[in-house]
Structures are given as structure tokens and as C-alpha cells.
């Protein structure tokens, strides 16, 4: 079942095209990783999917009553802004203490409850944002570069958590990754974007081979995988794409 379908979607910032004729759909329960160079329209694509950004052309079709849980790109919450993790979970709408507690338990960080958001480490903050996103059991979980700033074991642990949540909640996952080649191994599809969809496919799960073990380090428990891009044209990124 398709939750969100994009048909010939184009996105512009002022007059500059960011995305051209993108066609793809998010199916229930699948994990999609979107990779691409800086400025390739990854975040724009995610924002079109959440509805935060209006498309300049084409159609975005969402199944009725679709619930989206969103984990934004790393936020900077400064210490001039007092906010406990508990209060953060009530953004934008108030949630019950029980729902907040359940969400923190589910991401394995109940101890964050009374902590100030500005004082969390990168990994703790990601978990708090994830907890916020899964309140209300979303149909799709969308994450914008969630592992930016995490080291490899940190990324691997985060990906494992995402995979567990997907199995538990049954939600689809759409994740933008800043890493072109190393992706979450549980991804059903990897989409390589550069203004348009360049290529897509399943990642190579190679974590058992010793040479890749050496590449990924220990303790990642097979959460990381390689994605081989099957397009051979080179991209320059200062012009809109058309081929």
C-alpha cells in the first residue's frame, strides 16, 4: 500500500529548480534511505513529503489520515532557552505524561525526562527527537540526516533503534543520509538524488566479510551497509540537472 506518492514533482526556490520531475512512492513499512551530494534536494524532497514545502509542479498524493513523525536536522537549542525533554515532547501539541514516558522508554532513554534539551549530547538529543516523532504511532517516520555528528558506533546504534521501531510500530521510514556510500543496512531501498533520481536499489549487506568489518569497525552489529551507485556520469552541482 502506498502512503505517499509523488508524481512528476518539481520544487523551486525562487526561480531556481531544486527538484525536477521526481516520481516515487513510500510504501507501508518500508525503509527508504535518500542519499545525494549537498544541494541535491534531499531535504527539499523530505519537506515536500511532510507537506512543509509546496511543490512547484506535479502531484503529492497522501493516503487519508496519514500520520507523519518528523525528526528534523540537528537543532541548536541554546541554553538561553529553558526546555526539559518532557516539555520538548509536547511540541507542537500537548501530550500526556504517560505518552511521553512511553516514548522515552521506547527509545531507551527514560533518564532524559527532566534534563534540559540544551545540555544533551548529540546522541541523547537524537533520541529525544525520535521519541517526540513516534508519539501517536506515525504511519511514516521521516528523518533528516539523523546521524550527522554521531560517530560510527553511534550511527549504528541509532539505525538499529530505527529498525526496531519500524518492526514494533510498523511504520515506513524515510531517512535522508549525509553519507553517500555507507547507509543503514535495513534499508529496503536507497535513492540517490541529485535534482532528480539518479539511481535506486537495495544496499549491499556485506558486514560479514572481514574486509568490510575492518572498514566499519567493531560493534556496529551489521547495522551499516554499502550502497553502490549504478550511474557513472559525474555531477557538477552548481547547475540544475537535465539529462
Amino acid at each position: 500500500m502506498s502512503l505517499i506518492t509523488l508524481q512528476d514533482v518539481s520544487v523551486k526556490y525562487d526561480a531556481d529548480p531544486v527538484l525536477l520531475n521526481v516520481n516515487f512512492s513510500v510504501n507501508a513499512g518500508e525503509i527508504i534511505t535518500i542519499v545525494g551530494p549537498n544541494g541535491s534536494g534531499k531535504s527539499s524532497l523530505l519537506h515536500v513529503l511532510t507537506g512543509a514545502l509546496a511543490q512547484a509542479g506535479g502531484d503529492v498524493i497522501r493516503s487519508s489520515g496519514l500520520k507523519i513523525g518528523f525528526v528534523p536536522q540537528k537543532l541548536l537549542v541554546e541554553n538561553t532557552f529553558p526546555m526539559t525533554v518532557r516539555r520538548f515532547l509536547s511540541l507542537p501539541a500537548k501530550v500526556s505524561d504517560q505518552a511521553a514516558k512511553d516514548a522515552l522508554d521506547r527509545v531507551g532513554s527514560p533518564e532524559l525526562w527532566g534534563r534540559q534539551v540544551s545540555e544533551l549530547s548529540g546522541g541523547q538529543f537524537q533520541r529525544a527527537m525520535l521519541a517526540r516523532a513516534i508519539i501517536g504511532r506515525p504511519d511514516v517516520l521521516m528523518l533528516d540526516e539523523p546521524t550527522q555528528g554521531l560517530d560510527q558506533p553511534g550511527s549504528a546504534a541509532f539505525y538499529q533503534l530505527i529498525a526496531e521501531l519500524r518492526d514494533e510500530i510498523g511504520c515506513a521510514v524515510v531517512m535522508v543520509s549525509h553519507d553517500l556510500h555507507v547507509v543503514m543496512s535495513a534499508s529496503d531501498r536507497v535513492i540517490c538524488l541529485n535534482g532528480h533520481i539518479c539511481c535506486e536499489g537495495a544496499p549491499d549487506v556485506v558486514s560479514t566479510a572481514p574486509e568490510y568489518r575492518a572498514l566499519f569497525g567493531k560493534g556496529t552489529k551489521g547495522a551499516l551497509a554499502l550502497y553502490r551507485h549504478d550511474h557513472d556520469h559525474s555531477h557538477t552541482h552548481d547547475h540544475p540537472h537535465s539529462h
Partner: peptide
């Protein structure tokens, strides 16, 4: 209030909630 607080935390976060 709740919109302003969400926007203060982050534009993306607010935008995903239609703010």
C-alpha cells in the same frame, strides 16, 4: 504560544507540523 515555541525550537520542526 505553542506555535511560537515550536518555531523558536526550529523552523523545520514547526513546518512539519504545518506552522
Amino acid at each position: 504560544w505553542s506555535r511560537l515555541i515550536a518555531m523558536t525550537v526550529g523552523y523545520d520542526l514547526a513546518a512539519s507540523a504545518g506552522i
